[in-house]
Each structure stands twice: as structure tokens, then as C-alpha cells.
């Protein structure tokens, strides 16, 4: 009897299912995911209350400044960061570079960002994310792009914003666009959905699902240019479920303070008194540059198809 039940139990373990992949991002809601380039920064992020870290060799601001081809980080660096913290660790693979993604999964990262911040490896096709056992997060500028990525198996969406600028304007644009399109879709007559799906280049079934539920079928964060506690709270009030902060923390004058302030601002995003308190004396923010000053070729958000 006991043996029989044990076999029943042992045979009943499902890893990497869609449910399990979508559940990890759900646990990150209301939290801040911070870019880190070494174990020391990862520990600072964890101590400040980050819900996860993104392991990178260079933050987007440096990628912009230094140029060249930007690839997946050295596995040694990723492994060291995984060892140094207890919170989930994410890492970036190039758009379409499914081998980088395979490597990251085997290293034990908890989530892969198929990211426009790195140099795309494929200018036509994204990674088939449904094949992997761990969730992917992908950037999007509009609902069509978000639903294409979800159709490919992304378990989490983030705005692209314009990474490495410290200018929140593009993240605001993308969040408003995605959320506005969802609102419009939720009151659209059923007979219009197929043509709408065709117009935005999204899978019909997902368009129907969003129309019925009034929200994306996965968790939706903001990313790209968030540099202050007020920026984080702005994105939360607009309607995202959490934030990524890239260059904004470790390119600022006092990373510890700023990291904690952004964590608090994300949790208490509707409370101006808390926001005022945590925004005091944070030291120098990252210098940044306006997204409007970027040449077309310098824009990262246009990468992805």
C-alpha cells in the first residue's frame, strides 16, 4: 500500500509547466528587479529589498557608452551572482539567441530576459520560449508586440522604455500604449476582434483572451529609464505590476539608499508622504541623457519584431 502511494506521488511531479513558469513572475509583483554587475552589487540589492536581480556584465548605460557587440554575460559571473544571493536571479540573452538561453537555463538562472539591450542575434525570429523549463520576460512597446512574445511562450512582459538613459518618458509611452490598447480591446465588439488581431499582428486567441479578461494573461512590469523613487511610483500608478531598475541604481551617487528608496516607493506607490520621505537626500541621480536626443540608430527599443 505504502509503496503504491509513493509511486503515485513520485510519478506526479511536473516541472517547467506553463503554470509553474507563470507563477514565478506572480511572486515578484509589487517588487523591484535590479541590474547588478557583480556579487557585491547583488548583495546590496538583496539587502535593500529587491525581489530579484538581473545579472549583467555591463549596465545599459555602459553598453551605450562603450558600444560594440553586447552579448550574454560570462557564465562565471552569472554563477557567482547566483551563489551570492537567496533571491531569484535573472540574466539576459540576445533576441533570437536560443543557445545563450540554453546556457543560462543550465546555469540555474530563474528567469531569462530576451533583451533588446543586447545586440540581436536574429533580425527575424525570437526564441521559442515554450521549449524552456524556466520563464522568460520580454520587452514590448505595444499590445501586438506583447501578445506575439506571449504567443512564443513569454511568461512575463515588461515595457522596453529606453534602457540606459535615465529618462522615463519611453517607459511611460509604452505602458500607456499597452494598457490603453487593453482598455480599448475590453469594450470592442466580438466581430471586430479578428481584424484587430490582424492589424496589431497578434495571435487571435490571445486577443480574445485579453478582450475577455481586460488584462494581459501574464505579469506586466515597467522597464527602461526608471531612475528615481518617483519614476517607479509613476509607473505603478499608471498600472504596471512592478519595476525593473537598470542603470538607475548603481550609476547613482548612493546606490544603497536609492535602491531602498525605490523598493519603498514601489510598495507605497500611492502614498505621496512616503514618496516624499524616501526621495530626500538620495545623492546624485544617474546623469542620463534624454531619450529624445538619441539618434534612431541609438534606440534600443526598436529592436524586436
Amino acid at each position: 500500500m505504502a509503496v503504491e502511494q509513493k509511486e503515485k506521488k513520485g510519478g506526479d511531479i511536473r516541472t517547467g509547466s506553463e503554470k509553474v513558469k507563470k507563477a514565478l513572475p506572480a511572486m515578484l509583483k509589487g517588487g523591484v528587479i535590479m541590474d547588478v554587475v557583480n556579487a557585491e552589487q547583488a548583495k546590496i540589492a538583496e539587502a535593500a529589498g529587491a525581489v530579484a536581480v538581473m545579472a549583467l556584465e555591463r549596465v545599459p548605460a555602459d553598453i551605450r557608452a562603450e558600444g560594440g557587440v553586447s552579448r550574454m554575460s560570462d557564465p562565471e559571473l552569472v554563477a557567482k551572482i547566483i551563489e551570492s544571493v537567496s533571491i531569484p536571479v535573472m540574466a539576459k540573452a540576445r533576441i533570437g539567441h536560443f543557445v545563450e538561453a540554453q546556457i543560462l537555463q543550465s546555469l540555474g538562472v530563474d528567469c531569462i530576459d530576451e533583451s533588446e539591450v543586447l545586440t540581436p542575434a536574429d533580425e527575424e525570429y525570437h526564441i521559442d520560449k515554450s521549449k524552456f523549463d524556466i520563464p522568460f520576460v520580454c520587452g514590448a512597446r505595444n499590445l501586438g508586440e506583447a501578445l506575439r512574445r506571449i504567443g512564443e511562450g513569454a511568461a512575463m512582459i515588461r515595457t522596453k522604455g529606453e534602457a540606459g538613459t535615465g529618462d522615463v518618458v519611453e517607459a511611460v509611452r509604452h505602458a500607456r500604449k499597452i494598457l490603453g490598447e487593453i482598455r480599448a480591446l475590453s469594450i470592442m465588439p466580438r466581430e471586430e476582434l479578428m481584424t484587430y488581431a490582424k492589424q496589431i499582428g497578434a495571435p487571435f486567441e490571445l486577443v480574445v483572451k485579453v478582450a475577455e479578461e481586460g488584462k494581459l494573461p501574464v505579469i506586466n512590469f515597467a522597464a527602461g529609464g526608471i531612475a528615481t523613487p518617483a519614476d517607479a511610483a509613476l509607473m505603478m500608478q499608471i498600472g504596471v505590476e512592478g519595476v525593473f531598475v537598470g542603470s538607475g541604481i548603481f550609476k547613482s551617487g548612493n546606490p544603497e539608499r536609492r535602491a531602498l528608496a525605490i523598493v519603498k516607493a514601489t510598495a507605497f506607490y500611492q502614498d505621496p508622504e512616503v514618496l516624499a520621505e524616501v526621495s530626500r537626500n538620495l545623492g546624485e541621480p544617474m546623469v542620463g541623457r534624454t531619450a529624445a536626443s538619441l539618434e534612431a540608430t541609438e534606440k534600443l527599443a526598436t529592436r524586436g519584431w
Binding site: 506521488k9 506526479d12 511531479i13 511536473r14 516541472t15 503554470k19 509553474v20 514565478l24 547566483i82 537567496s86
Partner: peptide
Amino acid sequence: RRNAFGPQRFSFETT
């Protein structure tokens, strides 16, 4: 014990 089953790859559903 936190995170007793390892990284997300080993997160699972069971009955």
C-alpha cells in the same frame, strides 16, 4: 529552509 528545491527549473506542481 528557504528555496528548498533549488532554482526555478525545479519548481513544480504535484498532487
